[in-house]
Design a protein around this nucleic acid. Structure first.
Lengths: 159, 159
DNA sequence: TTGTGTGCAAAAGCTTTGCATGTTG
DNA sequence: CAACATGCAAAGCTTTTGCACACAA
């Protein structure tokens, strides 16, 4: 729910995983790719591509939007980053290594995102895959509502 | 799962509901709004705004994209149409009156969309709402996978 | 008659692409 | 050194907005 491990050990692990993924697929190991992965794993929130781009710029990295999008796709492909669409036409991303599967509850008033886990999702995936003859490889469950008293009505109070 | 009722009785019902909704909110009853609703209820598939716009044009209605988007929003607000995002940056819509709640299974290879119902979703919504102090008003559950043997690999074979 | 709704086209916002240059393998 | 990745800017696509005109109330 809070304070995920952001230590250097985790960052080293994901860098290694990414490095191997690039190797296995004959993609090149560029400094930009590793820098982007590292910055993502120093963050703890959900972010969009533009925010990540700005963040990289602020850290004085010389990157382009194209590279940010390109790298995000690579990271999604090797399961180090997860991509979401919380109802709007704007992709949101979050790091995913070392976190257990979870889903999201989104406040339609203030945009706040909470996370939760429920084992019944896995059961539903298995059952529906069997019944409908689908090989289910992924899912997305979003609950929409509002956080009532706690809702600041403004965009993202705690940032 | 198939052949939903598309008879005139249903269309009349939704036209009445929409009419009342417009009245209650002091919105005007324009021919465009009713024409769009009617065309939506003659279809049985998931569609995007552009496809609906083209469809209206082909029927020789004189409508604009602005009106299509405007009307879709009105229809979503009064629960006659449901809006989805199946992973891509493109809103998909479907009529929702008279259908029981259902979720979707999307083929990542051919884009085919299947529907299913599972009561456990409702349980999860209730439980998570209680635990996290959220008033859950809506949800979206998409399962992604592929339909293997049945998958035509091409976009939407049956259209 | 008044003001909301519409059509049209331009603008906005997110993402992708083209091209010349740089850099990895 | 050859091919791929990058930066930059332009283009693409979906959706929204501005404005003058039409029409519902």
């Amino acid at each position: 729910m809070d304070t995920p491990k952001v230590d250097d050990a985790v960052i080293q692990e994901v860098l290694d995983i990414f490095s191997k993924h690039l190797e296995d697929n004959s993609f090149r190991k560029t400094p930009e790719r590793f820098a982007i992965l590292e910055e993502i794993y120093k963050r703890n929130d959900h972010f969009d591509a533009e925010a990540l781009y700005i963040h990289m710029k602020n850290q004085n990295y010389r990157v382009s939007r194209a590279t940010v999008y390109n790298t995000l796709e690579l990271l999604v492909n090797c399961d180090l980053v997860k991509k979401h669409q919380f109802g709007k036409n704007l992709a949101q991303y979050e790091k995913s290594y070392g976190y257990k599967q979870h889903d999201h509850l989104i406040c339609i008033d203030c945009g706040k995102v909470l996370e939760f886990c429920d084992p019944r999702i896995q059961q539903i995936k298995n059952m529906m895959g069997d019944i409908l003859k689908f090989k289910v490889v992924d899912h997305s469950l979003n609950l929409y509502g509002n956080c009532d008293g706690a809702c600041p009505r403004t965009q993202k109070k705690e940032e």
